[in-house]
Design a protein around this nucleic acid. Structure first.
Length: 851
RNA sequence: GCCCGCGUGGUGAAAUGGUAGACACAUGAGACUUAAAAUCUCCCGGCCGUAUGGCCGUGCCGGUUCGAGUCCGGCCGCGGGCACCA
């Protein structure tokens, strides 16, 4: 019988459906296990990153179910966002129709993968049922003081008259219009995530099952620092600005100050801007840089001397200039800094550019003061000699010096020590249609008031068009005009929608009770939370995961989650990305036009489109819609079957590492699975009495395989689990054991393979007399007695180089091993009579003879 | 620019500080076949050598250690994130 995946896969998927194997129900008698993969954006096509992500989750879900857990494994759609509006603008149609049709397409592509998903819990974030509950929570959060409004800057395209995302700003120009982008200030909605800065940081220590690197990245993002806040008194400053407050994390370098720099958005800069055209020019120039931190940091550092001077707090005769500088952020600290060029490279460059002094505060121990060619910035733990210190020992580490400097300044009433966080409040306003409407009403009499809950959901109106840029909600009078829920007077609805990160910050909680009339159901949330294993791309290491951690706390505060769920993800696994080469042709304006891999042909001189247009082959980067370097897994499934696609993405590459997609290899996987099936077929037709040689060896190999594969799956080392499965398959194929032993081992092989290739595994199971569905059979357990080895091979090193090896009983004491080693022919020959200085025996591992 | 990660054969990779290259892919050689495909077997880091074997080898430079792919310091290259991409 040949291996026919198309045939068996459909059959087993039907069998699972019929038996309702994956429908999750609360069951107090079983331990629960909630496994979740980051839900996809419904672009319309699944890509290899999805296949990798969801297969990984499926392996865990199927394994845990076999191991006796009551598993919840849901799926949904992160369905709001810009691509739907872009599609509407480019091709016509409606974002809602586009999105739901994409969801239907993608569901149709995912189902053949045979994932053990409880599809009865599926929802999309653009379902009014979902976003209505999100609006209810927004209102609850307003009630708890977690929501506020303030001014914030956005990228403004003056030609298209629309707000641009950072991604839509390319080299300071709008992606469609090509117009120079301006910064514009708008009143926007914010979540007070900064209330939780300290807690979100400290709680990272408790996330033992998160990757260290993610915790580090989050810690750095929150950016706790201790420093000194103090004021410089000004000379020749306008009225009301007799002091400039600054914050510094290096108060120990106060005597190395050479200038003060304020943000272009600092109140003093704003004041000067109104009165001095030259300041206005400079500030306007600063505002041409995009709003992203990356753009600011990469921009040429520029300053404008305001002519205002400040007095040094320790010496009123010492005056320093005040610059407006494009690299000072208004959002961090006080929006003003003092520059210490000797010990900060950016300040050094600035001082060099504007001819400012560069006095050293400390120098390396054992050296003399010298003219610096770059800033001297040793680690804060390194001891240095303070030549312009004012507190503490002459020789001390930066960290101590900061503490003593703060103490000293406090005692002299020059400022006070403060804890500062880099984390900013979360701006959630988006001036776009395809998002969750912010459920707020602007009333002339009552001001800004939350919508009444009984009016929820505030649904998006369908009758909108995208022929004019801008937010269609703004120009939709019947939707916009409403009654004030407080006084009943005519009022206007908020037209901002929420950041799509809000949608993805609580979907995991909604899955526990996807159709509840409140955001969550207390009993369901209590039973299923937390997510035991969360799996997704490392690119979400900071924003999505931090926002989710905040949102879970906000949901606890508003009574929508139990206290135990404030850290919603018990364990996190960040899979590597699926990468691919990028391809671009040159557009009319010289900017790159990205091309799909399937449209590109490799030719001798490089690559080209089918019509011969030359294509530039770009860097290998994360597959992304915007760069079009995506590959369609559907043809792999059509040609070889889902099991081949699943096995292939799990084999070879470790799951946390990036993998570059290449077409080769899928065929080899299909061949292997066919070999496994052929082996099963052969065993099925064996004579009962045949063979019988080495039954015990096969049993040992089987238990070894159970132990190794189980360890591989538990440890997220799927590639190693698969290598062990290859090894075991080869052993089984060569075995001369009898039918009963072969058959039993083959069924174990099928079980061990079942998380990866569930359809083939079911078929083998059924073929060799397994009872019921393999999906419901208990996971095999290795007998420890079958794993012990009697003799082991010990390599012998001489001076760290391998020279010989010996075979000894596994439990031989070290003293015995030493004797055998020293008597070994090869060792004696190598020693050539030289005395042995040291003999290291690492039991069960290695012997090293030092001469 | 700042934060984080990664770098091992032709390729994907493996290796609690303990025999570098398990397990695969590709190439090559062979068996079967009239032939091809399929299947099976063998070789497969480099150099020297008939071989036992020897020397070199985990991006580069240095350090710790009896022993370093693994730990530490400094570089180089690539990737991720940088708050309005999802």
């Amino acid at each position: 019988m040949p291996y026919e995946p198309a045939n068996i896969e459909a059959r087993w998927q039907e069998a699972w459906d019929k038996a309702g194997v994956f429908t999750a129900r609360r069951d107090a008698d079983k331990p629960k296990y909630y496994v979740l993969e980051m839900f996809p954006y419904p672009s319309g096509r699944i890509h290899m990153g999805h296949v990798r992500n969801y297969t990984m989750g499926d392996v865990v879900a199927r394994y845990k179910a076999s191991a006796g857990f009551n598993v919840l494994h849901p799926m949904g759609w992160d369905a709001f966002g810009m691509p739907a509006e872009n599609a509407a603008m480019e091709r016509g149609g409606h974002p809602k129709d586009w999105t739901y049709s994409n969801i239907a397409d993608m569901r149709g592509q995912m189902k053949p993968l045979g994932l053990s998903i409880d599809w009865s819990r599926e929802f999309a974030t653009c379902d009014p049922e979902y976003y209505g509950q999100q609006q209810a929570m927004f209102i609850d959060m307003m009630g708890k003081g977690l929501v506020y409004r303030k001014n914030a800057v956005v990228n403004w395209d003056p030609v298209d008259m629309t707000v641009l995302a950072n991604e839509q700003v390319i080299d300071g120009k709008g992606w469609r219009s090509g117009a120079a982008v301006e910064r514009r200030e708008l009143t926007q909605w914010f979540f007070k995530i900064s209330d939780y800065s300290g807690e979100l940081l400290e709680a990272l220590d408790g996330l033992k099952d998160w990757p260290e690197k993610v915790r580090l990245m989050q810690a750095n993002w929150i950016g706790k620092s201790r420093g000194l806040q103090f004021a410089f008194s000004t000379v020749d400053a306008p009225g009301g600005f007799d002091r400039i407050e600054v914050y510094t994390t290096r108060p120990d370098t106060l005597l190395g100050a050479s200038f003060v720099a304020i943000s272009p958005d600092h109140p003093l800069a704003r004041h000067l801007e109104r009165h001095d055209p030259k300041v206005a020019d400079f500030v306007a120039d600063c505002r041409k840089i995009g709003t992203s931190e990356e753009a600011l940091e990469k921009a040429e550092k520029k300053g404008f001397d305001t002519g205002i001077r400040v007095r040094h707090p320790f010496d009123t005769a010492w005056e320093m200039p005040v610059y407006i500088a494009n690299f000072v952020l208004m959002e961090y600290g006080t929006g003003a800094i003092f520059g210490c060029p000797a010990h900060d490279q950016r300040d050094f460059d600035f001082a060099t550019k504007y001819g400012l002094p560069i006095p050293s505060v400390f120098i390396p121990e054992g050296t003399e003061e010298a003219t610096l060619t770059e800033a001297f910035v040793p680690p804060k733990t390194e001891k240095v000699r303070y030549i312009r210190g004012f507190a503490g020992d002459e020789v001390q580490a930066g960290a101590e010096a900061v503490d003593t400097a703060i103490e000293f300044c406090e005692s002299k009433a020059v400022g006070h020590g403060v804890i500062n966080y880099r984390l900013r409040d979360w701006g959630v306003s988006r001036q776009r249609y395809w998002g969750c409407p912010i459920p707020v009403i602007h009333c002339e009499a009552c001001g800004v008031v939350p919508e009444a809950k009984e009016n929820l959901p505030i649904e998006l109106p369908y009758d909108v068009t995208f022929d004019i840029p801008g937010n269609p909600l703004d120009r939709h009078p019947t939707w916009r005009n409403c009654a004030c829920p407080k006084c009943g007077a005519a009022a206007r609805r908020e037209t901002d929608t929420m950041d799509t990160f809000v949608d993805s910050s609580w979907y995991y909680a909604r899955f526990t009770s996807p159709h509840a009339a409140t955001p969550t159901d207390a009993e369901d949330a209590d039973y299923w939370m937390n997510v035991d294993q969360y799996i997704g791309g490392v690119e979400h290491a900071i924003l999505h995961l931090l926002y989710s951690r905040f949102f879970a706390r906000a949901m606890y505060k508003t009574g929508h989650l139990p206290a135990k769920a404030i850290e919603p993800f018990k364990a996190l696994f960040t899979q590597g990305m699926v990468t691919h080469e990028t391809y671009a042709t040159k557009g009319a304006d010289g900017r790159p036009v990205w091309q799909m891999p399937e449209d590109v042909m490799k030719i001798d001189s490089g690559a080209a489109l089918r019509d011969g247009t030359p294509v530039e082959v770009g860097p290998i980067i994360k597959m992304s819609k915007s760069k079009k370097n995506v590959v369609d897994p559907m043809n792999i499934i059509a040609t070889y079957g889902a099991d081949t696609a699943r096995w292939f993405v799990m084999s070879d590459s470790p799951p946390e590492r990036d993998v570059e997609w290449t077409a080769s290899g899928a065929e080899a996987t299909a061949k292997h699975l066919a070999r496994v099936w052929a082996l099963c077929d052969r065993i099925g037709t064996m004579e009962e009495a045949a063979g019988g040689e080495g039954d015990d060896d096969l049993a040992r190999a089987t238990h070894r395989a159970i132990a190794d594969v189980t360890a591989g799956i538990e440890g997220f080392a799927f590639n190693k689990a698969i290598a062990k499965l290859y090894e075991f398959t080869n052993t089984l194929g060569k075995s001369k054991a009898g039918k009963a032993a072969m058959s039993s081992s083959m069924r174990v092989l099928a079980q061990l393979m079942s998380p990866m290739v569930p359809h083939l595994a079911e078929d083998i199971w059924a073929h060799l007399g397994g009872i019921g569905l393999i999906a419901q059979a208990p996971w095999p357990v290795a007998d420890p007695a079958m794993l012990v080895q009697d003799t082991i091979t010990l390599p012998i090193q001489i001076n760290g180089k391998r020279r010989a090896e010996i075979s000894v009983p596994a439990d031989m004491p070290a003293s015995e091993v030493e004797k055998i080693v020293l008597a070994d022919d090869a060792v004696v020959k190598f020693l050539a009579g030289q005395p042995v200085k040291k003999l290291i025996v690492v039991p069960g591992r290695i012997v090293n003879v030092v001469i």
